[in-house]
């Protein structure tokens, strides 16, 4: 029961993190014509944030302990 509540809270946290990462104003910080490793900043940022959110969700869903 405790574990389920923890997992639930982690998922909610992942949702909130995603909401912040994927929207204004954080988005505007990376919305400029520069590159990172030859890849446009905004493109790299969004995919990085996306991977991060999915990883958070996977961790929240799959973690068995703690």
């Amino acid at each position: 029961m405790q574990r389920r509540i923890l997992g639930r809270d982690r998922l909610i946290a992942a949702f909130l993190v995603g909401c912040v990462l994927f929207n204004y104003p954080l988005l505007s910080v990376f919305d400029r014509p520069s590159e990172i490793f030859g890849i446009p900043m905004i493109f790299a940022y969004i995919f990085f944030a996306w991977v991060l959110v999915i990883a958070l969700m996977a961790w929240a869903s799959e973690a068995r302990s703690g």
């Binding site: 639930r8 969004i46 996306w50 969700m57």
Partner: peptide
């Protein structure tokens, strides 16, 4: 440009709440 992406970011976010 990247304007097509929100259509997939929305589902990503909502799946975090899918458990509920």
């Amino acid at each position: 440009g990247i304007g097509f992406l929100p259509v997939y970011l929305g589902p990503t976010l909502v799946m975090a709440l899918g458990w509920f």
